[in-house]
């Protein structure tokens, strides 16, 4: 089932005098329960496509359809609400809130997503997700005391605790060693299946492609 559809998306950046076409009419559909890997040379436009799909910047042309709604027509506040409640994000760095414990990071996300869960149910949900990512034993830890891999696990937990429909992961393993990278990718893969998320994964690491259901190559602003 298609959750997010990218339709003829174009992006032009004006670098001073010259206008550069970075995306030149991209079509892509993300399906529930599927990891779609986006690969391609540096500068080919992967991150640009991901951020447009996630409503973090606007396309110059074309449409992004989420759950049947055209995001191109939405207000900034409507898009924020979708990002908060329907999307999850993982980046190269975990970007956790330094003054919140692992548990609080996740409660914050539930708060931002405006879940209707009771306080007690929220705490149970946090426990459940921490078991899934294997971080229950560090519930009260602050980010500064976590290793890179542990931080990324918490970031994954934060990205999925509110049960988003789409998960955007831009090079989530780039700052991890190969063993940790595999663990993190296995986790993203498992979560995608378990929660039936449509996952868009950008990666440079060919070893990680075994965790993808579909591999899309991007060359010079186009998907072939």
């Amino acid at each position: 089932m298609t959750v997010l559809a990218i339709d003829d998306v174009r992006k032009t950046f004006n670098n001073g005098e010259v206008a550069e076409d970075i995306l030149k009419g991209v079509h892509l559909a993300l399906n529930a329960g599927e990891v779609t890997a986006l690969v391609g040379a540096s500068g080919s436009g992967k991150s640009t496509l991901l951020t447009i799909a996630a409503g973090l910047q606007q396309a110059s042309n074309g449409e992004v359809i989420f759950d049947g709604h055209n995001m191109t027509d939405m207000s900034a506040e409507q898009i924020r609400q979708i990002r908060a409640s329907q999307f999850g994000f993982i980046f190269q760095f975990a970007h956790l809130v330094p003054f919140l414990t692992v548990e609080e990071q996740l409660l914050l996300m539930l708060d931002v997503a405006e879940t209707t869960l009771s306080k007690k149910a929220q705490l149970q949900e946090v426990d459940r997700i921490l078991v899934l990512v294997g971080m229950s034993h560090r519930k009260q830890a602050y980010p500064a005391s976590l290793s890179g891999g542990e931080k990324q696990r918490v970031a994954i937990a934060r990205a999925i605790i509110h049960r988003p429909k789409v998960l955007f992961a831009d090079e989530p393993t780039a700052s991890l060693d190969s063993q940790r990278s595999k663990e993190v990718m296995q986790l993203i893969h498992d979560m995608t299946k378990e929660l039936q998320i449509a996952t868009l994964l950008v990666t440079h690491d060919e070893e990680m492609l075994i965790y993808a259901d579909r591999i899309i190559k991007m060359t010079d602003g186009l998907i072939n």
């Binding site: 994000f89 931002v112 997503a113």
Partner: peptide
Amino acid sequence: IGLYGILKAIGVK
């Protein structure tokens, strides 16, 4: 700034 950017990205008002 980095933190606020991320918080805004994940949907914090």
